[in-house]
Design a protein around this nucleic acid. Structure first.
Length: 884
RNA sequence: GGGCAGCUAGCUCAGCGGUUAGAGCAACCGGUUUACAUCCGGUAGGUCGUAGGUUCGAAUCCUAUGCUGCCCACCA
């Protein structure tokens, strides 16, 4: 066995073997308990980032543990076509090559896009392989695959048939940069500093008098069709019915009363621009006003804005409009003002409310979707996200699902050639299109990418094609077990998957929900709590990290700092610790290998079990129980901590050290000890495997534990009950070992506080009331682990510095030159603390209310504690007396 | 404007009604006795954001309040 662990070589070798052997594949004859996860499909345009590492490590832990537990596992991988993102990437590439993407035909552009997708689409999944993910890559799905596309379009057609998808001319969020409509969820509200302009329009009927109006958007003045005031506002009531003079292009517009106007905001008078504001649009509808669109799709002013503004960008037009107001003496004030502006999530520019013809979905099954979560049929971890989810569903708005893009699922609607597209009589909606295509024109738009992702758990398992569903064992793997994702896409994706599943499947909620639990991970930030971003340069390159620390080190490190459901502050040091632990594991196993092979491996003679053997076995059983509950509650952080603590503190630093002493003293124990070590290491490797798949697999092989099963992940994991059958464990023995370990720790600390190096041999005298036999039994451990020379019982402490342990007082025969003062000081402090504690114990036990109300167990505990403290105090005083 | 989290040792977090509040990292002291210096032993460090309340007992429950961060919301 190599002295060093070469993780790079090991990881590559095993991953290839795993994939080649097909051990990640789902069973084609599934039986027993199913455990499926669908991967949140990464964008084909994406590169692996820290969030992917965390998210996929967690999924892999769940999947591998399920495999060990003998469940029938399926982890479905795939990629998302990434609508706008991919289109932008391809457009940029074309421009670089001197091709104008807008001059291309749809088919030509799509050809370029497909080629890019085929060249780059699998990069991110291949990167994930380096992390060790055990997805079934043979079942990979891409959202634009023919079968999956069919799923999406069937969904559209059916929702249309049910009257839930409709086409309408409505105010939508328009992104002037990508020139498409967006859903409300794709608009981020950001507070921005701007100006609130106060200006005045002349009253036509009373020349020379004016009405004052506040606005943040003077560039939309040419689109004004009215001025609105509150109908009961005494300041303006008399003006309703009269007209105001719009300054440019000059026009007379009516002054109307509408109670949407807030009297106490600004001047209480509102200019109405129905084409560029949703409130104004509603007002316009109520009053039968026209909408004058003064903007072009790319966010510039058009001819209707008048010659001075036409052609300017929104921003430039605002400046120009302010200047024009000033020139006309109409601008009264420009106050600094902070307000929310909608920003396009994708392109980062302010969105423009715009009137256009789009397709909308009225969400089905909203009440059932709420019920599914509220009732706990779908469980959220952490639970608080339930509220966020329910709140969104309570206020749900229809979803604009059409996008003015080329890349995506083209809307399966055809319009009769040269006829009114707004008249449903001229629509054809179907999967295959009209029988006489020459008379029809297909809708140019594609569907929102999130519309297609909403079908992910359904489509990946073959729905709605019955043959495909049988082939994919839909009935067995659906509903999936768990979804692991970020809370940032709770509306975009999680809620919509639930809704679509409920809309299309029939049966009890338990059977038709897409998953039974959702674990929301935190977001990875840098060590200062900032979001990882390219511009800040604070996002490490995941593959570099894997190369530097090993996939196992990265996995362990990340999980060890990820608090449940809270953001993760990333620091490279955690990866170092992760890697160090893997090295530690390697060395401990190597040590076992150096002890040699056993003739009869795995056969334990329980008659030879000692107290320390029982204690380590008990720790292993406890660890096994803790792992089960921690992983069940998605407490990855706690699970990792306990795994590391057991191995370092209990196994390596205590048990193995003790075994060295035992074997040195008594060669006949050797086989027994090594057998037990093998049992422990073997089980421990299995417990650790989901977290660090590579090093555990390598050791599984190196240690020769693979005689029955080559791959550790396919080896059944014993539970706590099964482990308890290995050998009987007495609680007295467990207590004895706990006391022994405490005694050793106290003696070591005492030596250290006396300024003595740990290996300095010291003679020690002890006084013990009833633990002499224990001390004698374990004297070799005490001497060896504490660096003691002679250890003898004595009647007096002879004025030597002494310390109190569970087993009595131990006095160190220190050289004369050792300074006693520090030791005296320490003792006095200790006595002080004891006295304080005893006083508080007594006060408690003298409190009648405490005795009356506290449970018996607590009172008994308090009494025992008081007794213990009194004994300690007495002995400490004795030590002090003998020293002084 | 509404809602949700977080505030515990220098840093990152556990603990969420019952002894004297824990861990890892960092700091400091000491150590190579045949797995491991990517290691081992040890020390120090906290009025649990603040103020009230409930309780025999509060970091933990309640009520206010202060920061910090996130989400939702059509006041131009």
């Amino acid at each position: 066995m190599e002295k060093e662990y070469y993780f790079k070589e090991v990881e590559h070798r095993w991953y290839e073997l795993w994939e080649k052997s097909g051990c990640f594949r789902r069973s084609e004859h599934p039986e027993g308990k199913s455990y499926a996860i669908v991967i949140p499909p990464p964008n084909v345009t994406g590169v692996l980032h820290m969030g992917h590492l965390l998210n996929n490590t967690m999924q892999d832990v769940l999947i591998r543990r399920a495999r060990q537990n003998g469940q029938c596992v399926f982890w479905q991988p795939g990629t998302d076509h990434a609508g706008i993102s991919l289109q932008v990437v391809v457009e940029k590439k074309l421009i670089k090559e001197g091709i104008d993407p807008r001059a291309l035909l749809r088919e030509e552009f799509l050809e370029y896009a497909c080629r890019w997708r085929d060249d780059h689409g699998d990069i991110i999944l291949n990167q994930l392989r380096h992390l060790g993910v055990s997805c079934d890559f043979s079942k990979k799905v891409h959202t634009l695959d023919a079968a999956y596309s069919r799923t999406v379009l069937v969904g559209f057609v059916e929702l249309f048939r049910r009257g839930l998808i409709y086409r309408g001319r409505r105010m939508v969020n328009w992104c002037p940069k990508s020139q498409t409509a967006l859903s409300d969820e794709e608009v981020l509200m950001q507070t921005q500093k701007g100006k609130l302009y106060r200006m005045r329009y002349e009253i036509v009927e009373n020349p020379g008098s004016h009405i004052e109006i506040s606005t943040t958007r003077p560039e939309t003045i040419p689109g004004d069709v009215a001025v609105a005031v509150h109908p009961e506002d005494p300041r303006y009531q008399h003006l309703i019915g009269k007209h105001a003079r719009r300054p440019f292009p000059e026009a007379e517009i009516p002054i109307i009363g509408d109670d949407a106007v807030l009297r106490d905001f600004g001047t209480g008078a509102l200019k109405i621009t129905p084409a560029h504001d949703s409130v104004d649009f509603a007002v316009g509808q109520r009053h039968g006003l026209a909408a004058i669109d003064v903007l072009t799709p790319d966010g510039r002013m058009n001819e209707l804005a008048g010659p001075e503004l036409c052609g300017l960008t929104r921003e430039a037009a605002r400046e120009k409009a302010v200047q024009m107001l000033q020139e006309r003496g109409l601008l009264l004030a420009a106050d600094d003002y902070e307000h929310s502006v909608g920003i396009s999530e994708r392109s980062g520019v302010p969105i423009e409310p715009r009137l256009s013809d789009q397709w909308f979905l009225r969400y089905p099954c909203v009440e059932r979707a709420k019920e599914a979560v509220r009732s706990g049929i779908i469980q959220f971890f952490p639970r608080r996200w339930e509220k966020t989810y329910l709140h969104w569903l309570d206020n749900i708005q229809d979803w604009c699902i059409s996008r003015q893009l080329l890349w995506g699922h083209r809307i399966p609607v055809w319009y009769r050639r040269d006829c009114d597209r707004r008249d449903p009589a001229n629509w054809h909606v179907s999967l295959s299109g009209p029988a006489d295509p020459e008379n029809w024109v297909q809708d140019n738009d594609v569907l929102d990418t999130w519309f297609s992702s909403a079908f992910w758990p359904l489509g990946t398992l073959g729905w709605p094609d019955e043959k495909a569903m049988v082939r994919n064992h839909f009935d067995f793997f659906y509903p999936t077990a768990t979804l692991v994702t970020g809370p940032d896409i709770i509306f975009f994706w999680v809620a919509r998957m639930i809704i679509m599943s409920l809309a299309f499947l029939e049966g009890d909620l338990e059977q038709i929900v897409p998953f039974r639990t959702v674990y929301f991970t935190g977001i990875i930030r840098d060590s200062q709590g900032r979001k990882m971003s390219k511009s800040l340069g604070n996002s490490p390159e995941p593959l570099d990290l894997i190369g530097q620390y090993g996939a196992d080190g990265v996995r362990l490190g990340l999980l060890s700092i990820a608090p449940q459901g809270q953001d993760v502050l990333f620091d490279g040091r955690c990866l170092e610790q992760g890697r160090n632990f893997c090295t530690k594991l390697w060395n401990a196993c190597r040590f076992r290998v150096l002890q040699g092979k056993l003739k009869e491996p795995h056969v334990l003679n329980t008659g030879r079990m000692t107290a320390e053997d029982e204690a380590i076995l008990r720790s292993l059983i406890d660890l096994t129980e803790q792992q089960e509950s921690a992983i069940g509650q998605y407490e990855f952080h706690g699970a990792v901590q306990r795994l590391e603590k057991f191995f370092r503190d209990d196994y390596c630093d205590w048990y193995v050290e003790v075994c060295k002493i035992r074997m040195r003293r008594d060669e006949s124990q050797r086989a027994h000890i090594l057998t037990l070590q093998d049992i422990i290491l073997r089980h421990y490797l299995q417990l650790l495997h989901p977290f660090t798949p590579f090093v555990t697999q390598e050791l599984w092989h190196t240690m020769g534990y693979d005689d029955g099963e080559k791959f550790i992940q396919n080896t059944p994991l014993q539970n706590a009950e099964q482990l308890k059958k290995i050998a009987p464990i007495s609680s007295d023995n467990i207590a004895t070992i706990a006391e022994l370990r405490e005694t050793i720790a106290i003696i070591r600390a005492h030596k250290s506080s006396l300024g003595l190096a740990s290996q300095t041999q010291l003679d020690v005298y002890y006084q013990s009331e009833n633990k002499e036999s224990a001390i004698e039994k374990y004297r070799f451990f005490l001497c060896s682990l504490c660096g003691l020379g002679k250890l003898t019982a004595a009647d007096s402490l002879q004025g030597l510095p002494a310390t109190l342990t569970p087993w009595g007082i131990f006095a160190m025969d220190v050289p004369n030159n050792v300074d006693n003062n520090q030791e005296l000081e320490r003792l006095r402090r200790e006595i002080e603390v004891l006295e304080r504690n005893i006083a508080s114990n007594e006060a408690k036990l003298n409190n009648k209310d405490f005795l009356a109300n506290a449970p018996e167990k607590v009172i008994a505990g308090a009494r025992a504690l008081l007794e213990e403290n009194r004994t300690k105090l007495e002995k400490s005083r004795k030590i002090l007396g003998s020293l002084g």
